[in-house]
């Protein structure tokens, strides 16, 4: 028996409609801010200050001709974009935004999110390998190398959060943070590391190797066009929304703030402010950095970040001991 609130959660808020709207909003934000930093104008004409440009681009791309190259595995070629969109939306539906418990919650949904994170990379790998093209296979190769590097410390830093709180579901995490204050005060290093890993996951500069256009055209999505491309692009923005929401829930206490939970919807405001702050950091880093070389990637990430994670691990164990 599916309750009406479950349907609402998955289809409207914070599921499909809300996350797609947020995806367009973050895309707009990114395009506009990067343009301003680069001394350009950015989106301007569609809607107030060009606000509807991402939506317009998405719709326009839906109606474009779709060209499927020869030697393509049609099943995967069709399924991959759909999966790529579905997984972040499903992940979003698990995150509590205006209350302690969302309708879809269950014991261990925080751990489950980690699993979904890996699965979303898997879908992009499928998308790339479905096509027989050198650019997409080099792109997927780079994607997997990058994934194997960032996933280790993304998982580690989130695991450390679970370790300190001894909790593996979102509602428990929020309750812990209501009592002890946001987790970022105890785990600032873990917070920063998680943001770095998120930038790598979102393939934004300096970690945009999998689709470096000067080297391998558009990487793993080179051969996509029309609908498929529209969905893949949407899925990247959805991942951004999802990742940012996850980090803001785990480290910044999501909707927690003054007047919460008495006046329920005010939680959305706090949540939005926190997400905005994280997204601004990501966008700024993206705008002022160039691409890392393939050879520098492991050195830069593993050699510099893993020691920090270990340090954070020790701190978290000590904090847990004395609290």
């Amino acid at each position: 028996m599916i309750g009406i609130d479950v349907l609402f959660t998955s289809l409207v808020f914070p599921g499909l409609l809300f996350s797609v709207a947020m995806a367009f909003w973050f895309q707009y934000l990114e395009r506009k801010i990067v343009a301003r930093i680069q001394r350009r104008i950015g989106p301007l004409y569609t809607g107030p200050h060009g606000l509807f440009q991402p939506l317009y681009d998405f719709l326009k791309m839906l109606f474009k001709e779709e060209i499927i190259p020869e030697n393509t595995d049609k099943l995967y070629y069709r399924i991959a974009p759909v999966l790529a969109v579905v997984i972040p939306i499903y992940g979003m539906a698990l995150i509590p935004i205006i209350c302690y418990k969302c309708a879809l919650n269950f014991e261990g949904d925080f751990l489950f999110t980690l699993f979904l994170f890996s699965l979303s990379v898997f879908t992009t790998a499928i998308a790339g390998y479905a096509v027989y093209s050198p650019y997409s296979s080099v792109g997927v190769g780079r994607l997997i190398v990058q994934y194997s590097i960032y996933e280790s410390f993304l998982a580690l830093s989130l695991a450390i959060a679970a370790l300190q709180t001894s909790i593996i579901d979102f509602s428990g995490l929020l309750q812990y943070q209501t009592i002890h204050g946001p987790l970022v005060f105890y785990q600032p290093i873990g917070f920063v590391v998680a943001i770095i890993a998120l930038i790598a996951k979102l393939e934004k500069p300096p970690f945009d190797l999998p689709h470096a256009k000067q080297e391998i055209v558009a990487g793993w999505m080179t051969e996509y066009s029309g609908r498929g491309l529209a969905f893949l692009k949407l899925s990247k923005d959805l991942s951004m929304v999802w990742g940012i929401s996850l980090i803001s829930t785990v480290y910044l206490g999501g909707p927690l703030g003054p007047l919460f939970p008495e006046a329920g919807p005010v939680g959305l405001l706090w949540f939005a402010i926190k997400c905005l702050a994280i997204s601004l950091v990501i966008i700024f880093v993206r705008a002022v950095s160039g691409r890392t070389r393939v050879y520098g990637l492991a050195e830069r990430l593993w050699a510099r970040v893993i020691p920090l994670v270990v340090l954070q691990f020790i701190i978290a164990v000590l904090v847990r001991w004395y609290m």
Partner: peptide, 11 residues
């Protein structure tokens, strides 16, 4: 641009 640093290109 070649090194993927588009902001420098634009500036």
């Amino acid at each position: 641009y070649w090194m993927g640093f588009e902001t420098m290109f634009m500036w």
